[in-house]
Amino acid sequence: MSAAIDDLPMPDLRPPKHRVERRAIGWWMLQSMLLAGPILAATTTAYILWEAARPWSLVAVIASSALLVAGVMIEPLWRYRVHRWETTDEAVYARTGWLVREWRAAPLSRVQTVDALQGPVEQLLGLSTLRVTTASSGGAIDIGGLDKDTAARIAKELTLIAQLTPGDAT
């Protein structure tokens, strides 16, 4: 069997066709700020108020500042270069991540639900996340940072195609 795998020509995965919206960079920045900001505030407060722990709380302050800087300056731009998505008549295909990259593909014949979701920050920026779920608990594909109208339109179209497939899609 291993021989057969070796014999195959070695093509590579091509990146999915579309990028996410440029506004998604702002979305990721805001998310990082909402997460790392309070941590930095807490460690700084501890540094100022609790003198006995000064040498160690300084380390915590530096670490949480680094987290904030990485989350706001590096992660969103890196993610924007990686995140891509594509849908065809047969499948959904997406690439996500920054430090850990992930390619996910699911055939529409296995799709159970297609939803366009909007978190509070996304509503602010007019963005939407397309969530495609299959019968598997680990099989969902999330495509964040889409324009909200695009996401709603694609959700509707994919739902129509998925309904054409008979069976319970397990």
Partner: peptide, 12 residues
Amino acid sequence: GVLEPFLTAHDN
């Protein structure tokens, strides 16, 4: 059949 449409145009 899932990933086949998403391959690069290498030799095929």
